[in-house]
Design a binder for these strands. Structure first.
Lengths: 317, 317
DNA sequence: TACGTTTACGGGCAAATACTCACTTGAATA
DNA sequence: TATTCAAGTGAGTATTTGCCCGTAAACGTA
């Protein structure tokens, strides 16, 4: 297997070099071509590769007035510890655009801490996008624990495996939860959660110093449904009793009250802790998530929010 | 008085937004212009402002990034034409690992030139390692000339015969210097260097288009000593008068000034040319060479450097 | 060895971007 | 009120970049 110190630098090494020269040093592609001894076209390919391989990470470091304003209003209205609003691109279809970078920055901020901390994380597309924006770090003193099972109904590991990727990038010890999101029965949940290993993980999660979760809606394309954790009948049922959103599998109504019974009887995730005294950061945006986010904020299921401009405006309506 | 949450966005806000749309969301400046309701040129100015105001932070997440940064700092600090820093493998004891490949690549880059050029080379373990990494080429139009004698004190050819191996690999006419590195006396040097053949070689060396040299230290295991070109007494003597390093036999102090007298009176190598206007590339790494490399850079005995990460960090201290 | 397939390369060109210059605006000042 | 000056604007233009496409080398297969 080729190592990092291979005689000939891998294509990615060259791409990194080209990307650095282009974005950091401000060379033109012609200059890069000359320096690396390749044609201009090859240099262009390398630069382009450095982006597509996610080697280049761009962030905006400026509080845009409009976003600051929205964030302040959200903080006031929902009594939040923190709130970050990133600009929206009205024409972009990507919901995680911008959110991902902001989420990653917030994660890094916590992970940079000298003293060991426990970070707990949920799962989902949004969190995964955040984790993809993280820079490599060395966080061996921290621990990362999953709040939610990563076993899909068919037994495979979830496609949005946030924790492994996260721990991999920041080189931290991690504790995924080898459980389904929702157990087959109440009894099964009892049995699963009584395992020593799982109890240890749940204990860790309870003591987490900071928590990052995504927020799922229960509409037509509910993540829980799309990932086959619940059936469409169950979803319809939940909606009927007023459920509007879901965090790590726990469904709740418009006021943020955890739904009694239904699938919640079988959710194997770590329990929600409304009004938690540590940062619990929800990362979510999108028009179809408005009700879900609003509920989570009202019920104080999360006490911090990272979202975008458009979503923030709707939440303040 | 305008508050932080003023409705009216400042120019920097607009710049931030434009920068965000450009770098994070990937819009073209035309699209940004449309969205912000300004002309395309203004959009360009905003984007450009977002960079010059350092609102946009670009990071390269790859081990190479550190090397690029170090290389840039070295270039700035010592006013170098070029500088390449290769990753260090902290677990490897080999000092030439990586350097050799980088050096070979640099040599090849020059040798690929269509128009005939003269390459002059020093000697030593490091250069030998570079040459061993060269690929076969056909460079009959170029000439390769040695800067330094290859006759050891016992009359044998040096074990690190760089030039013959180099010329052999790239099939170029070559001019080794049939001299000792250090003549027995000042007079002997005169006689040796007055030979027509030698004078021709020295003339060639003076007109070299590119030069590659190793950098030797004068510590306990100084190459000059180990190869029996100088005695331990001479070495101690040189150290006493401040010599820290040596290039093709010429010893110099911490500021890169060639030592007056001592062994330098008898060095038979081509003369050093500080501040040369052609590339003079030093190839060296290792903790015991720090002072020697630093001196060579300060005195502009070389104007380009190929080294490794660990050495680069120490040089910048 | 011959042949089909994949991969990378570089020429060329249209789109996108950066830069220059002459002009406008508005605030400060004589 | 006139003048100066800094900052911004749009037009025009040169440079840079992104991408298509034909060619060639590399690779796997028969």
């Amino acid at each position: 297997m080729p190592s990092k110190y291979d005689a000939e630098p891998s294509r990615l090494d060259e791409a990194a070099r080209a990307g650095w020269l282009y974005y950091v040093a401000g060379n033109t592609q012609d200059e890069i071509a000359k320096k690396l001894g390749v044609s201009r076209q090859s240099a262009q390919r390398l630069v382009s590769l450095s982006i597509s391989a996610k080697l280049i990470k761009v962030r905006l470091d400026h509080p845009i007035a409009r976003c600051m304003e929205l964030s302040q209003h959200l903080k006031d209205k929902f009594d939040l510890r923190g709130c970050e609003v990133v600009p929206s691109d009205p024409t972009s279809s990507s919901v995680t655009l911008g959110i991902a970078q902001a989420g990653a920055a917030e994660m890094e901020r916590h992970l940079k801490s000298e003293k060991p901390l426990i970070m707990s994380v949920g799962t989902g597309r949004t969190l995964r996008a955040c984790v993809d924006q993280l820079q490599q770090m060395d966080c061996q003193m921290h621990s990362i624990v999953s709040l939610v099972g990563n076993i899909a109904s068919d037994g495979s590991a979830s496609a949005y495996d946030v924790i492994v990727r996260l721990a991999d990038t920041v080189k931290a010890p991690h504790f995924p939860m080898p459980l389904p999101v929702i157990a087959a029965s109440v009894g099964e949940r009892e049995i699963l959660q009584s395992q020593t290993l799982i109890r240890h993980i749940l204990e860790l999660a309870k003591n987490a110093d900071v928590t990052f979760v995504g927020i799922g809606h229960l509409g037509e394309h509910a993540p829980l449904l799309e990932d086959h954790f619940i059936t469409d009948a169950e979803r319809a049922d939940l909606q009927k009793v007023g459920a509007v959103g879901e965090i790590v599998g726990w469904t709740y109504d418009g006021e943020g009250n955890i739904i009694d019974g239904h699938t919640n009887d079988r959710v194997a995730s770590a329990p929600m802790m409304p009004n938690h005294n540590k940062p619990v950061i929800g990362v979510a945006a999108g028009i179809d998530k408005i009700a879900a986010i609003s509920g989570a904020l009202r019920g104080k299921l999360v006490n911090s929010l990272i979202t975008n401009e458009a979503t923030a405006e709707l939440l303040l309506k």
